[in-house]
Amino acid sequence: MRADLEIIQQWVKPGHHVLDLGCGDGTLLDFLKRERNASGFGLEINPDHITTCMNRGVSVIEQNLDTQGLDNFEDNSFDIVLMTQALQAVRRPDKVLDEMLRLGAEGIVTFPNFAHWRLRWGLALSGRMPESESLPYKWYNTPNIRLCTFKDFEALCRQKGIRIKSRRVVDGQHQNNWLARLWPNLLGEIAIYRITRENT
């Protein structure tokens, strides 16, 4: 099993109502439905992913976070709002974080670390924008327009009064890696953050 699914699953309680922003082909929601009897919806814009979700019985809504926002969802209408590998692709990640914690008591966010040593090394050595397993695009066609590092993200959370309940770091294959746990901002490729509002 993918390590990130395993980790996220531990934070979802049986019967939780979840919203998955950028749900892809519905793998995570399908997994949570089966393993945790979770209900909820995924939002997606990729037509093929939407079709796959519908075929596997995952409730999916075609909705673009950048242009349509999340106004159609009510405050505190979910137990958990998920966003895996999509935060770096929205125009205003800061506002999306606010929205996640408006809709849900908790948020789970995963994104690729732009300070991973291989990316640093690549940029230093070649002087070109780095590419990697988790970032397999050219600078001009990448959907990842808001890349950041773990430190950047944590600074933003502090500034916004968002409390980080847990952080788990995995490698590009979503596997646990003890080195990455030791020195995350340099050796971690993907982090899984569990966040909540400061006063909760």
């Binding site: 409730s59 999916v60 159609n72």
Partner: peptide, 15 residues
């Protein structure tokens, strides 16, 4: 669709 979401019904939607 929004009414179905608010009522927590299972719904899929595409334009």
């Amino acid at each position: 669709v929004n009414a179905m979401i608010a009522a927590r019904r299972k719904v899929s939607y595409a334009e």
